[in-house]
């Protein structure tokens, strides 16, 4: 069901992760993802996976919710892992069904598949956790502040941030609307599932046209409502929530930096071969 999409969803809470300064949360997420991509061996990868899991535990968001989000990318995950098995032929051959074929499964293929899969899972955990634990308004506020140096180049950072806030606010509304329009057109005999690519594209017209028309109407009404609430558009506003860096923010930053250092060190320095995964085999 289209309504099951959880991208950009926010689960209100009072955990440490929820309470982190959203600016720091964005920086931490970027740092952690960078570390993740620098990982070259299982030692650093497992370290990052552990960090991700600790984040999830600290956020007190149930694993069920997280897994539901992961379900959406399961196909991509399996596909990528499969390709890794296919493209890697180093190491010991584990299975080579037909002698004349190129296809064979090797230890290195299997390990790199696991490696990639774990990396994607950790990546998803870290990035979804950012939106799961930060309200869209705070998130866009934080982005606005982090990008505020760009004002020097006459970029309207505030307008961009407001656009993002509104976009995030309307995603669920639009998803619901698509659902209703689709059902209504199906009730008039619309066939969205069969036919050639061309036919299917054409079948989308009865859904996209009302969606656009309704969105313009919504935008128009929203503009009136924002004006009625004294919105000026110049960015001169106070904020309900102040962002203040606190001890926990720096503590988390320190941990993230240590991880980054670990990732760099273990991938660059020869650790006597022990941690590098080719040697583990």
């Amino acid at each position: 069901m289209i309504r099951d999409i959880t991208i950009g969803q926010y689960f209100p809470g009072t955990s440490v992760i929820h309470k982190l300064d959203p600016r720091m949360k964005i920086i931490l997420t970027v740092l952690n993802i960078a570390s993740l991509f620098l990982c070259r061996n299982f030692f650093s990868l497992l370290l990052m996976l552990a960090i991700s899991v600790v984040w999830v535990l600290l956020s007190r968001i149930s694993f069920k919710t997280i897994l539901k989000g992961l379900k959406m990318i399961l196909v991509i995950l399996l596909f990528t892992a499969f390709l890794q098995i296919f493209y890697n032929d180093g190491g010991t051959v584990l299975w080579h069904p037909v002698e004349s074929w190129d296809f064979k499964i090797t230890t290195e293929g299997v390990f790199s598949a696991i490696f990639i899969a774990v990396r994607i899972v950790a990546l998803i955990l870290l990035s979804t956790l950012l939106t799961y634990t930060t309200s869209p308004t705070l998130l866009t506020d934080a982005i606005e502040r982090l990008l505020s140096p760009l004002k020097v180049f006459h970029i309207k950072v505030h307008s961009l941030a407001m656009m993002m806030t509104i976009a995030l606010r309307f995603i669920p509304t639009l998803i619901e609307e698509i659902d209703i329009i689709m059902s209504a057109q199906k009730a008039r005999g619309a066939d969205l599932e069969t036919g050639s690519l061309m036919q299917r594209a054409k079948a989308l017209v009865p859904i996209l046209v009302p969606l656009f028309v309704n969105s313009f109407r919504r935008a128009y009404e929203l503009a009136f409502a924002m004006e009625a609430r004294c919105y000026g558009g110049d960015g001169k506003r106070t904020r309900l929530r102040v962002m203040k860096l606190q001890g926990r923010d720096f503590a988390m930053l320190a941990i993230a930096l240590v991880c980054l250092a670990a990732a760099i060190v273990t991938s660059v320095v020869d650790m006597g071969g022990f941690f590098l995964f080719e040697k583990v085999i």
């Binding site: 329009i181 209504a184 009730a187 009865p206 009302p210 028309v213």
Partner: peptide, 12 residues
């Protein structure tokens, strides 16, 4: 035949 609520929002 099923006519949804606010069917005018489905005209196209």
């Amino acid at each position: 035949g099923l006519c949804f609520q606010y069917p005018e929002y489905q005209l196209f």
